[in-house]
């Protein structure tokens, strides 16, 4: 028997994402996929799904869903809680756990306490792949449901659920440390003062932040006059930090263009890009430079930390055994930037 999840309201913006599509950057198709892949994998792991199964990525809260036809199980990842309405009760559900909805029950994801996005995974979700992935690329009209963002009334089919509710033993720890970058490929387009500025001053996430990239605001970076503000277009990657003529950096994300003509002063390392991608407009960050070898080690450490979190998934504890809310609140106190999978 299959279950159906109806999107009553997608909130600010919601889309189906998995780990993205590879191999098509040469015809200009970006990877797409979850901006915080670790959170998507955690949400899927809480349900016994394949870690790379598609799930709903949503921005800024307000996502409202309803179960139809059969009980279905969801899992929540991100810094938010949700309100569950059943026929005879109304209760709050914290993130980093699974929750089962009976037909007719609704779940509303509240405003995010920190950051700008969260994940809602669905046990046994079924979404067709297009060009190798179910990820929505709304600009290219690929993936998801008809290549579009989730709209009110959209329906997802899933397996009917059974078994224990699961939870993370420990929610991802907060990390307010600087976002690490590897300088290049076009750091030679900037004078030493600008490189020093990038690595020492605070940058604020502007309101121009979407799945393509995040524009930052800070003291402008200056291109060397003899090099200019343009390059012959070359390839970009998620994490590329482009600097257009006005000097404010743009960090490219999963839906970012595959090539571009602005010099790229540095690249955010893969271990830290999700931490930057989930930051909300107005939040501030610092950058720090590392070597390629250090960045590769960080990628492995990041993966090991995620594996440890997944290994720590267990049955939902009795009330009082672990106070998720206390952990959650502690993150808010210590998390200047946000809490993050480490």
């Amino acid at each position: 028997m299959s279950a159906v999840l109806e999107i009553v309201s997608p909130g600010a913006m919601a889309s189906i994402q998995d780990l993205g599509r590879n191999g098509l950057r040469k015809v200009g198709v970006p990877r797409a996929g979850a901006l915080a892949a670790g959170w998507l994998r955690l949400a899927n792991a809480l349900l016994g799904n394949e870690e790379d199964a598609p799930a709903i990525e949503f921005f800024a809260g307000g996502l409202l869903v309803r179960a139809l036809e059969a009980p279905l199980r969801l899992a929540l990842a991100g810094h938010f809680s949700a309100e569950l309405r059943t026929a005879d009760e109304y209760r709050r559900v914290d993130s980093w756990r699974s929750v089962t909805l009976a037909p007719g029950d609704t779940l509303r994801c509240t405003a995010l306490a920190d950051g700008r996005l969260g994940y809602l995974a669905l046990a046994g979700i079924r979404v067709a792949q297009q060009l190798g992935s179910a990820s929505t690329d709304a600009r290219a009209a690929l993936g998801g449901l008809d290549g579009r963002l989730l709209a009110p009334g959209a329906r997802l089919t899933a397996a009917a659920c059974s078994g224990d509710e699961m939870m993370l033993k420990a929610s991802p720890a907060a990390d307010a440390s600087p976002i690490r970058v590897v300088l290049g490929p076009q750091d030679d387009y900037f004078d030493e003062a600008s490189i020093a500025r990038l690595l020492s001053e605070a940058y604020q996430v502007s309101s121009a932040a979407d799945r393509m990239g995040v524009r930052l605001e800070g003291r402008p970076l200056r291109h060397r006059p003899e090099k200019g503000v343009e390059i012959t277009s070359d390839a970009t990657v998620p994490g590329s930090i482009q600097v257009p003529g006005q000097g404010q950096p743009i960090v490219l994300l999963a839906d970012g263009q595959t090539a571009g003509g602005y010099p790229k002063i540095a690249t955010v390392i893969s271990a830290d890009l999700p931490r930057l991608a989930v930051m909300a407009p107005g939040q501030t960050l610092h950058f720090a430079a590392v070597s390629v070898a250090a960045a590769e080690l960080a990628a492995r450490a990041h993966e090991a930390a995620l594996r440890a979190l997944i290994a720590g998934i267990g049955p939902l504890a009795e009330p009082g055994a672990i106070d998720l809310k206390a952990i959650y609140d502690a993150n808010l106190v210590s998390g200047v930037v946000d809490a993050q999978v480490r």
Binding site: G28, V29, P30, A140, L142, E230, P244, Q257, T258, A259
Partner: peptide, 26 residues
């Protein structure tokens, strides 16, 4: 080449008199 967006064709060469740098504010 293709890039920047799915199917975006970089084509050349433009008649030299039409050549101007990109906009400084995208």
């Amino acid at each position: 080449m293709l890039g920047f967006l799915p199917g975006f064709p970089f084509m050349g060469d433009l008649p030299a008199v039409l050549s101007r740098p990109r906009r400084s504010e995208p």
